[in-house]
C-alpha cells in the first residue's frame, strides 16, 4: 500500500511544480512527472506476486503471468506523452522567440 501512497506523492510533486513554478520548462517537467507517476501506478496495479513477464513459451504450460492489459495502456500512453511534451516544448520555444523570456508572469505583462 505504501507504494501507491508514494505514487500519489509523486503526482502531488508534479502538481506542485505545475502550480507554483514560473518557468515554462519547469512547468513542462512537472507535467511529465505527473504522467510518470500515472504510468507507474498502472503498472503497479497489473503486478501479480510471483508472476513472469507476459511472454508465454507455447511449448510449456502457462504459469502465472503479469496482467498484460495495463501494460498495453501504458505503452500507448508513453508515446502520446512524448508527443504532447514535444508539442508543449514547441509552444514554449515559440513564446521565447516572441517575448525573449520563459517567465509566464513577464509574458502576461508583456502581452498586447
Amino acid at each position: 500500500m505504501i507504494t501507491y501512497l508514494l505514487c500519489f506523492i509523486l503526482f502531488l510533486v508534479g502538481l506542485y511544480g505545475v502550480l507554483t513554478r514560473k518557468n515554462l520548462i519547469k512547468i513542462i517537467i512537472g507535467l511529465s512527472v505527473m504522467e510518470y507517476s500515472l504510468y507507474l501506478f498502472l503498472a503497479l496495479i497489473g503486478y501479480i506476486d510471483g508472476g513472469a513477464a507476459p511472454i508465454i513459451d507455447p511449448s510449456k504450460p502457462a504459469g502465472l503471468v503479469v496482467d498484460p492489459l495495463p501494460q498495453a495502456f501504458v505503452l500507448t500512453a508513453i508515446v502520446i506523452g512524448l508527443a504532447t511534451t514535444a508539442l508543449l516544448l514547441a509552444i514554449a520555444i515559440r513564446l521565447y522567440k516572441k517575448y525573449n523570456t520563459f517567465d509566464i508572469d513577464k509574458i502576461n505583462t508583456l502581452k498586447g
Binding site: Y39, G51, V74, L75
Partner: peptide
C-alpha cells in the same frame, strides 16, 4: 514490475 516492453519504450 516485469514489464520489459514498457522498459524498452520508456
Amino acid at each position: 514490475l516485469k514489464a520489459p516492453d514498457l522498459a524498452i519504450v520508456q
